[in-house]
Design a protein around this nucleic acid. Sequence first.
DNA 1: TTCAAAATTTAGATCAATCTAAAAATATAT
DNA 2: ATATATTTTTAGATTGATCTAAATTTTGAA
Lengths: 218, 218
Amino acid sequence: MTTTAEENYLKAIFKIVERESKAANTNAVAAAMQTTAASVTDMLKRLAEKELIVYEKYRGVQLTASGNQVATSLIRKHRLWEVFLVNKLGFAWDEVHEIAEQLEHVQGEHLVKRLDDFLEHPQFDPHGDPIPDAEGRWAYRAQRLLADLQPGVRGAVSGVEEHSAVFLQYLDQIGLALGTEIELVERMDYDQSVRVLIRGQEQVLSEKVSRNLYVKTL
Amino acid sequence: MTTTAEENYLKAIFKIVERESKAANTNAVAAAMQTTAASVTDMLKRLAEKELIVYEKYRGVQLTASGNQVATSLIRKHRLWEVFLVNKLGFAWDEVHEIAEQLEHVQGEHLVKRLDDFLEHPQFDPHGDPIPDAEGRWAYRAQRLLADLQPGVRGAVSGVEEHSAVFLQYLDQIGLALGTEIELVERMDYDQSVRVLIRGQEQVLSEKVSRNLYVKTL
DNA sequence: TTCAAAATTTAGATCAATCTAAAAATATAT
DNA sequence: ATATATTTTTAGATTGATCTAAATTTTGAA
């Protein structure tokens, strides 16, 4: 069927198309896959041959229905395995990406279904990202970036935009986890940093943090 | 480090050397890996280059200390994942081999340790095979083939020699699982089939079955 | 609008893992 | 002990995934 390399390309293309709302170009895919544009062109030909993508030379690439199905299933598996690693094996949220990256390619009849049952059908992964269901449907998340909230608004941390270990560890350090209540006290005109209230404690978060933190308002 | 293909060769060599108590020859490895002797020779050169095996042309192959460590770790991971699949996800014992074959190659710091903790340090996998500990030590199993027991001896099923799905399903059908108590009533001179007592019911098992079933005598 | 810069593709290699067919080495049976 | 059979290795290809360097196409700025 599809190789691991092909699957990783499909996932990368899916994410680029989702983010940019247009066909993914070769360089964007190369950057995402940490490889060269030439390698990407080769792979795109193979994926087009298998009708997993629609590829027009020099014009970028999009997923076909079956390519989309493969990518969605991979994201589903990746996020379910992340829930397993954190909730069952006790990993921290910044430690699970690389392992889930491998686990998502494990094939086996009923494996995803049984894992999903075992985990009791989680809707979100440990970073707050939605887990598509078995039919590929996505849960809608009523959340906003901390950067977009008005002063005085309260909410609970519901996800992160950036997934780097260093950012996640920083959040740990300042006592922010999924579900933590947070109130935006004031946004500084000078540098767009924000004063927030976390467990009765006032703290200052940089604009960068506020642009990478999702909050579900209460 | 080592590729998945290399790891699978090391595991195959480990098992052949264990079974035959001598260097594994090319054809035996080819049979185990379901490939050609020529492919095996190629791979042996690469593995010898990496000092994972000791390979003398035309004289067979054995594992070095580091090759042995890799193979043992793979078997440990394979069997731990099988325990996970059966005990946690609810798979049957004849359904888990292929999936564990993939899971054993997943790399990740602390993954095996955390999985082992989560499973509460099982000593045996769902087929009764011993799981080497983190230092590569094997649990000793005081078990004998049903075929080697004397009439009148009672015991509990403790493992299988053959691992095929069809054999395991046959055992399910006749009500034999790990731990099931069984008594050898009589061995027939004619065809070495055995009359056994299982949960008060007498049944006849073929010689073939008796040669593939391990019993821990009481 | 044209031409240089940027993006992309093509050409030609390389590497791991495999194959078939042929050659060489080892084992075995008369 | 020698010839035949078996086992193993070598030679030469192939495939997927990658690379660098060169050629081509597209984009956008003067």
